[in-house]
Amino acid sequence: MNTWVLINAVVIALSCSLAGAFLVLRHRAMLTDAISHAVLPGLVIAFLISGSRNTAAMLIGAFAFGFICIFLVEFFRRYVRITDDASIGITFTSLFAIGIILVSRYTDRIDLDQECVLHGEITYSALKRMALPGTNWHVPQTFVSGMAMLFIVSLLIAIGYRGLKITSFNPDYATSIGVSVTLWHYISGGIASMVTIVSFEAVGAILVIALMVIPAATAWLISKRLPAMLLNTTILSVTGSVFGYWVAIWLNVSIAGSIAFLLGIQLMVVILVKVVARRLPLQRATK
């Protein structure tokens, strides 16, 4: 029974970390922070209109607010000349505030609450089941949507691999050979936003950020080439989710929080090992 919760966490972790890798490479990690907060009012409004946890409606709502977020940031920056980071900060805190007010105002009509916004509902993700078409297997809905998302993300990365790679590592060279850096900037941002929005409901605002940023950042420290980095990213996201899940069950604490924290511990261990290794005489001799 609980195995499904772990499987769901791993599936979501895989797609988040893969999509996050290209954001981290482009130094746009804080974008996930903004998007994961800004889509909340979209989810709540969609919920209020459709009257149920209708995935399609919630996706439309979230996407609409994702766009409003990007528009407002751009608007404040360009027309009001508020500095870059401040316009991001103003926009996502305000949208998140609207979401929280709606959640607490209509708390009786929505089965979302202030806490679930932060924690997500990974614990309950195994409960709602659906039959796989043509079979008798009943699997959780979250698993099905998670697998679909993982497939789409992998496919997009496979198709756009060359463009994503060249514009992440050497934008000047990309421009000189006629590859549009702006276009791939939006494609990588778009993939990340999609994953953020789909995962938000299951794992909450904070774990989305952790999954997108930490495994990729950790993998970047230990990999020399992009394929190795992507592989390490996925491995680290899986180990982080599994350890985090175990710790959460063992200590009876929040699963989302525990996974986020364990991902951070992995990064800290990697940095410490690198720092210590740099001081070893053996390494110095080989240099």
């Binding site: 990690a29 940023v213 604490v253 986020a260 364990l262 951070g264 990064l267």
Partner: peptide, 25 residues
């Protein structure tokens, strides 16, 4: 590390908030 401070911010923010969520429960 070679990670930029914005990446470091996202990492620390989410990991520490995760720890905080564990303590909250």
């Amino acid at each position: 590390t070679h990670l930029r401070s914005s990446t470091a911010m996202a990492v620390v923010l989410s990991a520490f908030f995760g720890l905080g969520m564990m303590l909250l429960t």
